[in-house]
Amino acid sequence: MKLLLIDDERDFIETMEKRFKFRKIDVTAAGSGAQALEILGREEFDVAILDVRMPGMDGLDTLKEIKKRHPLMEVIMLTGHGSVESGARGMSLGAYDYVLKPVDFSVLLDKVEMAYERKLLNVAKNA
């Protein structure tokens, strides 16, 4: 499984990277929505973890672009502030889940795996 982490908080990215690598998951980090789209243009990923609040292109705009260009990649949204409107929008834009920070790592890992399973099911269906 190839995982893309998109968050502007360096500390968060670093810890997450370490923990996913420890679980032998191939993880790449992007510091912004624009950078994520650039990486996605070169490489294919299965699941992305995307922070909602980022300077510049925010999480929802990034999600919209991702779903337009890579509809089969699953995206789990992370948010620090639970906004219902943003959650409803994110889910309607095709997010896999909308999770409130701080999230327990094992719970997140579980969600990533479920999202990956869905991606595989979707790929098989579209093959």
Binding site: S83, V84, V99, L100, R118, N122
Partner: peptide
């Protein structure tokens, strides 16, 4: 729809947490 085996409350809980805060 793409279906997966999941328990109802696990599928619902994240949305409830999100709404609960607001």
């Amino acid at each position: 729809p793409v279906t997966q085996l999941e328990s109802l409350d696990r599928a619902v809980e994240d949305m409830v947490v999100l709404v609960e805060k607001e």
